[in-house]
Write a protein that binds this DNA or RNA. Structure first.
Length: 430
RNA sequence: GACCCCGUCGUCUAGCCAGGAUAGGACUCAGGCCUUUCGAGCCUGUAGCACGGGUUCAAAUCCCGUCGGGGUCGCCA
């Protein structure tokens, strides 16, 4: 029998890390087994379901590369649920009350053989009846879920651990309706650093937010993969494609995993580092434009800027801060540079400016040669001139290598900014 | 409270099912090196089998209990 799995988000909120990971594992199981992956939009709550959320969910899944073979909307299937409920009434398994329909069941021990957790036994259920059709004629979650999973031929229900306690109720419904019971796999939850569910404040932000901060999809997927699953060979960097070959649902762990932004950042920095410059530049261009940081930019120049920073940023967002001096010259010298600026080297920097003026080909090798010679002639240690020069060009104490930075900015800009520093000192000491 | 799930460094994990060497890796952190700076790179280090009992020549691994954490108990999904 062909494997069919599904992801069933409710468009009553944005897709967040937890949902994305559930989807990822469900998708992986289908793809690993040459099966099919179904997306089911659980939009039975018409009040709370919003088109905006739906769009965001679809967009985020597509972004991550999780494609689906079929898509269904529960809001289009109300007659099906009603029909099944009436069938239960006819068979005496359900009854109408207060214009709702209740499923009546009797206590029995239920065993579930979970693919991740093994045998789970439920000794008792808290109730003996369950609403299946609400008084507005829309189905309740458990009812619609069972009918759809059965009718859509879902063979493996892969979902979050928070659904474990729904499982016995659902099994009772499968039996009453005469459907085959699928295999279940309950994924551990993603926890916040305080323990407990991911909160709005931490981690439960939408996937869109992560994209806006400049996380690469590869890094995000990689991180999600590592939360509860491992390739077992000490690899940390692994692609979706590689995972698709070796993934086994049985290898998924049982323990809740605390979300770590530190590790995500590290992974993201690794992916940024490894991404080909050309490709990364296009990504950065698109990103900075979307963010409204730049309107247009010369791609050749941007490529140089990207090469300057790609090894030292954790996310594309960092560029807005660290590389701002490459796009704008209206920065101020940061507080952290005060110590460096204390020493007035206006005379020396004037000499430096004159020496740099004479360079024909303003590349980093040539700049470094002249720079070092100037420092030596002035009786300065190289670093004594490097530090203020960096402040002059970037406004900061730390940054990429000075000579590379100079080459990227170009002669004219470098001379201009060095001149500003001279002026700054002169005014400070006037 | 009831039912259910889970417990290896601060965090993510390998090892557990098929018991045997100094419990391995990654992030973070600390220190060092490099050096023109560093939030980059390289190296080193700190840190863990929740606890108690049992089985066994031998327990992170098997069994029981305790404690701890989490989830669910809606005409939400």
């Amino acid at each position: 029998m062909k494997v069919r799995t599904r992801f069933a988000p409710s468009p009553t909120g944005f897709l967040h890390i937890g949902g994305a990971r559930t989807c990822l594992f469900s998708w992986l199981y289908a793809r690993k087994n040459q099966g099919e992956f179904i997306l089911r939009i659980e939009d039975t709550d018409r009040e709370r379901s919003q088109k905006e959320y739906l769009e965001e969910i679809l967009e985020s899944l597509a972004w991550l590369g999780l494609d689906w073979d079929e898509i269904y909307y529960q809001s289009e299937r109300f007659p099906i649920y009603l029909e099944q409920a009436e069938k239960l009434i006819k068979e005496g398994k359900a009854y109408s009350k207060n214009s709702a329909i209740f499923f009546k069941y009797q206590f029995e021990k239920i065993e579930v053989d979970d693919l991740i957790r093994g045998k789970i036994e439920f000794k008792e259920l808290p109730k003996e009846e369950e609403v299946i059709i609400k008084s507005d004629k829309t189905p309740t979650y458990n009812f619609a879920c069972v009918i759809d999973d059965a009718l859509m031929g879902i063979t493996h229900v892969i979902r979050g651990e928070d659904h474990i306690s729904n499982t016995p109720k659902q099994i009772l419904l499968y039996r009453a309706l005469g459907f085959d019971i699928p295999q279940f796999a309950h994924l551990p939850l993603i926890l916040s650093p305080q323990g407990g569910r991911l909160s709005k404040r931490f981690g439960a932000t939408s996937l869109r937010e992560y994209r806006k901060k400049g996380y690469l999809k590869e890094a995000l997927v990689n991180y999600l993969l590592l939360l509860g699953w491992s390739p077992k060979d000490n690899r940390e960097i692994i692609s979706l494609k590689e995972t698709k070959e070796i993934f086994d649902i049985k290898d998924v762990g049982k323990t809740g995993a605390v979300f770590s932004l530190d590790k995500l950042n590290w992974l993201n920095s690794q992916y940024i580092k490894e991404k080909p410059l050309e490709e990364l530049t296009l990504l950065v261009e698109k990103y900075l434009k979307e963010e409204g940081f730049l309107e247009s930019i010369d791609r050749t120049y941007l490529k140089k800027v990207v090469s300057l920073f790609k090894d030292r940023i954790a996310k594309l967002e960092d560029l807005k801060d660290w590389a701002k001096f490459c796009f704008y010259d209206n920065f101020e010298y940061q507080e952290e540079t005060k110590e460096i600026l204390k020493k007035n080297l206006s005379k020396e920097v004037r000499v430096l400016i004159e020496d740099l003026k004479n360079i024909g080909n303003f590349n980093k090798e040539e700049v470094e040669r002249i720079f070092r010679a100037t420092a030596e002639n002035l009786g300065l240690k190289n670093r004594d001139l490097v530090h203020p020069a960096r402040v002059a060009l970037t406004g900061r104490r730390v940054g990429p290598g000075l000579f590379e930075t100079m080459e990227v900015l170009g002669k004219e800009e470098v001379l201009k900014r060095l001149g500003w520093l001279v002026k700054y000192w002169e005014e400070e000491n006037a």
